[in-house]
Design a protein around this nucleic acid. Structure first.
Lengths: 215, 215
DNA sequence: TGTACATCAGTGAACGCGCGTTCACTGATGTAC
DNA sequence: TGTACATCAGTGAACGCGCGTTCACTGATGTAC
């Protein structure tokens, strides 16, 4: 319903495709996954529903393409943040902070790619994301951080940072909570990194005697 | 479509209500939240859709009642597990393990109450669950475990255990992964407990020098 | 003990809704002669 | 340079689907007399 749309020139049909993806991302951000319908996207683009099928074979493909964009921007943010950080554990921590902040900034997008149905491509991207974190963990191991299994450590770490995002996204967003997203992300990332590395180094279960260390 | 159903006797209309809730839980477990429709529940109970409205004012109320059951069983499992564990950190750890195992055993139920839309009652139950964990943390603090903020520690902990469940639920369930859910739950719980307590005790960010401790 | 009646669990058919998708079409535009 | 034509972006109307929900009804059953 964006009123006066001019029809694309002859070779330029692909322009609408990009526009539809922009709009899909916006609808997702504004109204969540339920707002992402063929009709809403078309209407928002000032076009009729069948026009969408000129560029996407089905709704599934439209959603799929939207997910790919989300993954791309996540990867871009992750890669930007740890560039030039020499200490590998610090770099890992920064990566986790960036991950959490991305999730908090784009809750609907995050939900779509993480909680949405597991298509083949979404699985591949989640895998790539996991491998990215695992590589960061491997760099820590190379630097002398003791872990039993790099893969398991990365798994624990991913669980921690995903949980930090997920818990916040799926709950109270109305109050003044969190008061400071950056602080929350930092502490949650610290908790995930410390927890994963400590657990990976030492298989003992926590008890009062293991967590109270004489200062 | 359970064929030969006998109609309830005169004062016994409430029996169908319980039956509908049993079936709703089963549908949820078998087919996820999308499978939980008025028509499916009715059909599964051998009854017509309007009969459901004799016991629930709307679909929302049916879902709501189903959620209450999930919360109840989660609380019951949590309370059973730490009974009689003297060491408070061990009790906290056992609680986390039980939480994670519950989520892994009932993925669809877990998703419904955690990822579903935040109704007032669902928020109240999530709050109760959080307070339960926080009380366990408080017991650790009473025993001498140093934390800056009990509430924040509990928050980090909940993020960790929720993430452990969520990550596993939303992904690869086909492969032989996890090879051993009990082991996964134990390690993820250790990671969450260690991470939360360590981060709560020491606000420094992780770096290589802080995680490599001379053995 | 027999019968009329109010009660209540459940039925059957239909409603409107938004959805994804299809199909025959239209009309502007670049291109070949 | 002018014109016929193939191409291609998009339209308009309609389809079937499953959903939640409504409404008038039916028929068994416990109860009052």
């Amino acid at each position: 319903m964006t009123g006066s749309r001019v029809r694309a020139a002859k070779g330029r049909g692909g322009l609408l495709r990009e526009r539809l993806l922009d709009i899909a991302g916006q609808l997702l951000e504004d109204g969540g996954a339920d707002a992402l319908t063929i009709r809403a996207v078309a209407s928002s683009a000032g076009v009729t529903p069948p026009a969408v099928y000129l560029h996407f074979a089905s709704k599934t493909e439209l959603v799929h393409a939207t997910c790919l964009r989300v993954w791309s921007s996540l990867f871009a943010e992750l890669e930007a943040v740890s560039r030039g950080v020499p200490d590998p554990v610090t770099a890992l921590h920064e990566t986790c902070v960036a991950y959490i902040l991305f999730g908090l900034r784009h809750p609907s997008q995050y939900r779509l790619v993480m909680d949405g149905e597991a298509t083949e491509a979404s699985r591949r991207n989640a895998d790539a994301c996991f491998r990215y974190v695992r590589d960061k963990v491997a760099a820590c191991v190379d630097a002398g951080v003791p872990v039993e299994s790099t893969t398991e450590t990365a798994r624990l770490l991913c669980a921690g940072i995903h949980g930090a995002v997920s818990l916040l996204i799926h709950q109270e967003r109305d109050d003044a909570w969190p008061p400071d997203p950056a602080r929350y992300a930092t502490r949650a990332a610290s908790s995930a990194v410390h927890g994963a590395l400590l657990t990976a180094a030492d298989a003992s279960r926590p008890s009062t005697s293991t967590v109270i260390r004489p200062g």
